[in-house]
Computed example of a mutant assay.
Amino acid sequence: MKYCRYLSPSGAARYAYVERQDGALWAMRPMIVPEEDLAARLASLEDHSTAAFHAAPLESLTLLPPVTPSKIVCVGRNYSEHAAELGNEIPKEPLLFLKPPSSLLAAGQPIRLPALSKRVDYEGELAIVIGKRCRNLGPDEDVSQYIRGYTVVNDVTARDIQKSDGQWTRGKGWDTFCPVGPIMVLAGPDEIDPLRGAPVTVTTRLNGEVRQNGSTKDLIFPIDFLLRYITAFTTLEPGDLIPTGTPSGVGPMQAGDTVEVEIGGLGTLRNPCVAE
């Protein structure tokens, strides 16, 4: 099952199940608000709009990020070729960093390139969405029960600031530096299943030209390992987002560019770039 989150005519966040119709993704019917999205639950109680739901193509909706995470736990250098292209060694353990929820950006909305940075890069990634609170997952524990599903992320990075700071908070955490969506796919045998060894391809295009084309089969640290490693130090809550790393081919974006990250079964995350 697939779903999106969008802005209703009344200005409230709404959820809808998504299906493919004639080659395009459509919001087909309303969906119950996920338990962690308290703001949407309250809005649904207060929303007195009498407008009935009508199926509509996603491109006609004002999309919102499909998740409302309490935290975004990212994994750096999780593809060996990406580590090499930036002159870095392959990490011996997962290299983790946080993006603030304020960096979230919906599909179709502009990535703002900060004036303080001379190089802002795209980084297309598959992201895990947590569905159940978890902490200290055991070595033999089935991690699939804690995964709600998957979505697409662009881990936008101010590369020069990342390097000059030495730590990655500013370089990775600017507002609009975490585009996500356009949809989320619920984990299940009928959908994508990278946890069970069915890899997915991550393709990034800049102005229509392919720049990244990697596969999750090349992850240094696979999904189950990442969840055990992360939950050894922090509690993951429903809705939390875990981008799993980017393949090789990262590069800079300029104002006026359009960047697209496509993952089979998850659709295409498309965002224009503008100067801040």
Rank of each mutant, 00 (worst) to 15 (best):
E59T: 12
F53V: 05
A51G: 07
S44L: 07
P69W: 08
S60L: 03
H54P: 00
D47K: 03
A56L: 07
V67P: 00
S60K: 01
E46G: 13
E59L: 07
A39M: 10
R41K: 15
P69K: 12
S60P: 00
P65N: 10
A55M: 11
R41M: 14
L38K: 11
P66C: 08
S60M: 03
A43K: 01
A40C: 02
P57N: 09
E59F: 06
S60N: 03
P65W: 05
S44E: 14
A56F: 00
L64Y: 05
P69C: 12
R41Y: 03
P66H: 09
D47I: 09
S49G: 14
F53P: 05
P57F: 03
L64A: 08
L45Y: 07
L42Q: 04
E59W: 04
E46N: 11
P66T: 07
D47L: 07
L58M: 11
L63Y: 06
E46Y: 10
P65G: 10
L38T: 11
L64I: 10
E46W: 11
S60C: 03
A51E: 15
L45K: 09
A55G: 15
R41E: 08
T50I: 11
P65R: 09
E46R: 13
T50K: 13
H48G: 07
P57Q: 08
D47Q: 06
L38G: 02
P69E: 12
L58W: 04
H54R: 15
P66N: 10
S49C: 08
F53M: 09
T62L: 09
S44I: 02
T62N: 11
T50D: 14
P65L: 05
L61Y: 02
L61D: 01
P66G: 08
H54Q: 15
E46H: 11
V67E: 01
L61F: 02
L63W: 06
T68N: 12
L58G: 04
L64P: 04
A55V: 03
L64M: 15
L63V: 09
R41G: 07
A39K: 12
L64E: 04
A43G: 05
P66K: 07
S44D: 15
A55S: 15
T68S: 14
L58Y: 08
F53A: 10
E46V: 03
V67L: 10
F53C: 06
L63M: 09
L45P: 00
L38D: 08
L61G: 02
A56Q: 12
P69A: 12
T50C: 07
H48L: 14
V67M: 05
A51C: 09
E59A: 14
L38W: 06
V67D: 01
S49E: 08
D47W: 04
A52Y: 04
T62E: 13
A39T: 13
L63N: 02
P57D: 06
L58Q: 04
L42G: 01
H48F: 12
L64F: 10
A51I: 14
P65C: 08
P57M: 10
T50V: 12
L45R: 12
S49Y: 05
L38N: 06
S60F: 00
F53R: 09
T62D: 13
T68K: 12
T68W: 08
P57V: 07
A56D: 02
A56W: 01
L58E: 03
H48R: 15
T50S: 15
A39Q: 14
H54Y: 06
E59M: 07
E59N: 12
L38V: 15
R41T: 05
S49V: 05
E59R: 13
